[in-house]
Design a protein around this nucleic acid. Structure first.
Lengths: 155, 155
DNA sequence: GGGTCTTAGTTGAACGCTCAAACAACTACC
DNA sequence: GGTAGTTGTTTGAGCGTTCAACTAAGACCC
């Protein structure tokens, strides 16, 4: 027998789904329009920009942005087309590749960041009190931990 | 000057993004694998099943599932291909169309629902206390309200 | 040192989404 | 009763994602 959702739970679930959708839409559109960057790519650029030498192994990068290798592979190919990322063989492991953020990529990221941050702030942080933010983070963290194979720092 | 995110805010934002992604992935995969239904289509079937006569005007349906008309149009076309939805002209308005859930569609929905509910329950409701659920709903509702043109019942 | 297994990464097709453009039917106005 | 504008819906191209299949290089082992 299925245990259906109560009205209360259903409202919570729908609110969650709607927030998800809206948040995704808004950030995506903002980045796409203001900077011509799909959100998915933005995350990749951010991860690279934070890495030493602005470069990472493909698999490490995939893990960092929580995406499949296939997706990363396609994405990096596109980013390389735009000249934002360069690929380099790995000396120590002939199978491996590095993705490296180019200067152009870094500039594109710098140009895109302010608008993105502003959008995020006005969508989330301007409408929630600090306790509300923490409660949201707590819930999000618990759900994520439960969902992913390797739980992560809860701080 | 951009007001960047504090460490605290950044952690919240990342937790939120990750939850979003995982939640989407999990529910999508579950439905796709167990029932061959993309989440997006599931929402459409649900909306239709709850409507009088199991049928709705295209535009009303689009609004109900919070999607663009274009998306709805594509989606209904696919659902019609599968025989889950039927389209009927609108008598009173020659431009209008109704989408109507077929018996096959209703059965597909009934078959898919238990697995979906179970997935949702174990992803969200099994890991959050009732106060945590309410806090999450509160935050999600506030964010959604702020993001969408027409705020909605807060209950 | 030649099998077999595993790991790193790529590829291509299928699919849903978005966007902009199109089309058709209704409405208003003069 | 045309013509201009609006509304309801569809269409097609472009794009990112997923999935399954594939290549190729390391690792292991006898």
């Amino acid at each position: 027998m299925t245990r259906w959702l109560s009205d209360d739970e259903q409202r919570t679930w729908r609110a969650l789904v709607e927030m998800n959708r809206l948040l995704g839409e808004v950030t995506d559109r903002q980045l796409q329009h203001d900077a011509g960057i799909p959100v998915a790519y933005y995350a990749i650029l951010v991860a690279l920009s934070e890495a030493p030498d602005r470069s990472m192994r493909m698999s490490a990068l995939a893990e960092a942005v929580e995406g499949s290798q296939s997706r990363l592979s396609h994405a990096v190919a596109r980013l390389a087309d735009r000249g934002w990322v360069r690929r380099r063989r790995c000396d120590s492991d002939g199978r491996g590749w590095y993705a490296e953020l180019t200067d152009e990529g870094f500039e594109a990221l710098q140009a895109a960041a302010p608008g993105h941050v502003t959008a995020v702030r006005s969508a989330v942080f301007d409408v929630l009190s600090t306790p509300q933010q923490h409660a949201l983070r707590e819930a999000a963290t618990l759900i994520s931990q439960n969902l992913r194979p390797h739980p992560v720092d809860v701080t």
